[in-house]
Computed example of a mutant assay.
Amino acid sequence: MTGPHAAAGGTVAGGVHRTDGTARGTVAGGVHAADGTARGTVAGGVHRTDAGGSREAADRAACRAEIVRLHEVLERWLSGRAPRTAEEFAAFARAHLPGFTLSGPDGSSLTRDQVLAWVEAAHGRTPGIGIRIREVELVAADGPLLVAAYQEWQRGTGADRNRRATAVFLRDPAAPHGLRWRHLHETWMPETPTG
């Protein structure tokens, strides 16, 4: 694990791994404490292991939560259950960094602007869509970057094709779950299992 093992109280900046339960100061963004005792101010991601948790478990949980959150936003938008407002669309758009790229399962390569334009125009076009995320795995975490793999199962689209995906995230304490999307690579799954 990276980051200093700090035992002193006060203000801490960056990714700090704590095992002694003595964090004090100001907390801003992504605090992961298994025992709920983190106090004070920390800028960046603080990861606590004093109750059996770990930085890896916290990163895995953050990736899973963000992947599920964004797909719930996307499902509501595509189905039309979300109103077509700038605020609702921003919940999807803000998740993607300016340099975001998508490698689609058909081999296409899209920029952030192209993805956002497609999603914005697709509001309400798939009223019966259901998206489920399965088997989220943390592939790598190094400094500000995290890589996660998962399965995306879609129903109600007329062509229920499931896909495997690999996402690259950049840590951002101001973002939901402390992560923003940098790249997404999707591949069609060879078969569509039932269930």
Rank of each mutant, 00 (worst) to 15 (best):
T11F: 06
G15E: 04
H17P: 02
D20M: 01
G21D: 06
T22V: 07
R24G: 06
A33I: 04
G36A: 11
G40M: 01
G45V: 14
T49C: 07
D50L: 02
A51K: 11
A51H: 13
G52H: 11
G52T: 12
S54C: 08
R55S: 03
R55Q: 06
R60E: 12
A65I: 04
V68N: 04
H71L: 09
R76C: 10
W77Q: 02
S79R: 10
G80C: 02
R84V: 01
E88A: 15
F89K: 04
F89D: 05
G99H: 09
G107W: 05
L110A: 06
L110D: 05
H123M: 09
G124N: 14
R125V: 11
G128Q: 12
E137K: 10
E137N: 10
A140C: 13
D142V: 14
V147I: 13
E152F: 06
Q154H: 09
G158W: 11
G158Q: 12
A159D: 15
D160L: 03
R161L: 14
R163Q: 13
R163W: 02
T166E: 13
A175P: 08
P176F: 00
G178M: 01
G178V: 00
R182E: 13
H183Q: 14
L184E: 06
L184Q: 01
H185M: 08
E186R: 03
T192L: 05
